[in-house]
Amino acid sequence: MERTVVIGDIHGCLDAFNALIEAIEPSSNDTIVTVGDYVDRGPNSKGVIDRLLELREVCQLVSLRGNHEDMMLEVLRGEVPPFSWLNHGGVQTMDSYGFVGDLNCVPRSHRDFLENLPNFFENDTHFVVHANYDPDLPLDEQPDDLLRWVKLTQEVPGPHMSGKRAIVGHTHDREGRIIELPHLICIDTYCYGGKWLTAMELETGRVWQADPYGNLLTPPAP
């Protein structure tokens, strides 16, 4: 059976990510979609990207770009000073790479990974973006800033013109709740803040969750 599993904002929480992958047990027939924000805030951004690169050899991996990847790339390219990024979790990211003053501590394979992240994923029933969308625009015409930066607390979009259900991250719930509307589900459940990382299988709605230390949550009885 082919599965499509979407994983929320990881933010350097490698233990939680590893626990979910171990529980999901992806095969070459499965598609794993990660919504972006692999780096910043949590303790091991480098390890998260290493793990994502490894997963490419195990399953069909689609890793989307989040706003934190945007910030990191702007600094790595020398386009902006690092101060804003460092204040939004970049310090933890650079620590995970062993930064001592030289941005070459970020290996070329990681830079290439970050540079080539797509903006969206879609199948017959769902689409996945990092943050938000314009309900009246096709996915390939969406503004980058909207896809990566605009929180649901700023604007909740209506149903998309495609009729497909949206899966998003970016807007964390401090209680660790999945936010579910008829046309939209948000799975940023605030792992770096002490709650959990969430994965959801699109075909069945099955959910896996792990806390920052890699402990799986026991699902409630049906």
Rank of each mutant, 00 (worst) to 15 (best):
N123R: 06
Y97H: 12
L64V: 06
D15I: 05
G194K: 12
E79G: 04
K151Q: 12
H160K: 09
F99S: 14
V5H: 07
E57H: 15
L146C: 10
H88M: 08
G169W: 04
L55R: 00
Y192K: 10
V62T: 05
Y213Q: 14
F113D: 09
G193M: 05
P159A: 13
F120C: 01
N44K: 04
I24P: 07
T34G: 00
D173H: 14
H170F: 00
E74V: 01
N29I: 06
P182S: 09
L216N: 05
E203M: 04
R56H: 14
I185S: 01
G36N: 01
M1K: 12
G169H: 01
M72A: 14
W85Y: 13
P222G: 14
P43F: 10
W196Q: 11
D70T: 15
L53Q: 15
V91F: 12
C105M: 03
N123E: 09
G66R: 00
N104T: 09
V48A: 01
P212W: 08
G158Q: 04
A199M: 00
V207R: 02
V58N: 07
D70L: 08
S162L: 09
E115Y: 13
L61T: 15
L73C: 10
Q142Y: 13
D15M: 11
R148G: 05
E25T: 13
